[in-house]
């Protein structure tokens, strides 16, 4: 409930945009959408595609549902949300297969599973179904961007340590010994923990500075 109240206070579009990027970052603070975060962030390209796909679905669904928010009957709101989300997921899935089939293979079941990403349903239920399309879109953009940034950071670290490359380009010396674990699920946990640690450390320092003022 405390979180819902806090959201009521952050009303302006800019605040919504910033919330997703930092203060309420979906991965670092809310710990939403962990499944794709850990599973497909093994290379930067996979992570970026997954992030973009999720953000696109979030933005599309938020806009549609926010526009229809006065029409959707309360009794079937969750069913309607999931129907809208699933439609966007299916369309995104088909588009990715048409454009980049190898990426589609690499992401496998995790593309269709965007429909079950609690980040999307959470934002729709908490915000998009109660606010104007403009605010909903800004919120979706902020959350989507925050999701993309974190996934990309994880993917970059894991790919660089796991195979010495970034977006497939060899960056480290040729004889670099790859840390295979970073490509495996365990590496996802390590990298995520390190990222959250860094975030908390920066945030902790920022809080100290703010309190000192």
């Amino acid at each position: 409930m405390a979180e819902a109240l806090e959201e009521l206070h952050a009303e302006t579009a800019t605040e919504r945009l910033q919330a997703g990027l930092w203060r309420q970052n979906p991965i670092l603070v809310q710990a939403l959408g962990m499944c794709p975060t850990l599973a497909v962030s093994n290379t930067a390209a996979n992570a970026l595609t997954m992030g973009l796909a999720t953000a696109a679905v979030l933005l599309g669904s938020a806009l549609v549902i926010s526009t229809l928010r006065e029409t959707i009957p309360r009794q079937v709101r969750l069913a309607s949300f999931v129907l809208v989300i699933a439609t966007f997921v299916t369309i995104t899935d088909m588009l990715i297969e048409a454009i980049a089939i190898e990426m589609h293979r690499a992401l496998g079941a995790f593309l269709p599973l965007i429909v079950a990403n609690c980040l999307i349903l959470g934002r729709i239920e908490a915000l998009a179904s109660r606010r104007s399309p403009r605010l909903a879109a800004m919120d979706a953009l902020g959350m989507g961007a925050g999701f993309i940034c974190c996934l990309l950071a994880l993917g970059a670290v894991r790919e660089l340590l796991g195979q010495g490359t970034l977006f497939g380009i060899m960056l480290l010396p040729e004889r670099f010994e790859p840390w295979v674990v970073m490509l495996l699920p365990g590496g996802g946990f390590f990298a995520l923990a390190a990222l959250v640690l860094a975030f908390r450390w920066v945030q902790g320092h920022a809080d100290v500075v703010e309190r000192a003022r």
């Binding site: 010994e177 840390w179 295979v180 674990v181 970073m182 495996l184 365990g186």
Partner: peptide, 10 residues
């Protein structure tokens, strides 16, 4: 176990 997962060949 970390080394085993990171550098299995070695």
């Amino acid at each position: 176990v970390f080394l085993q997962a990171a550098f299995p060949a070695a």
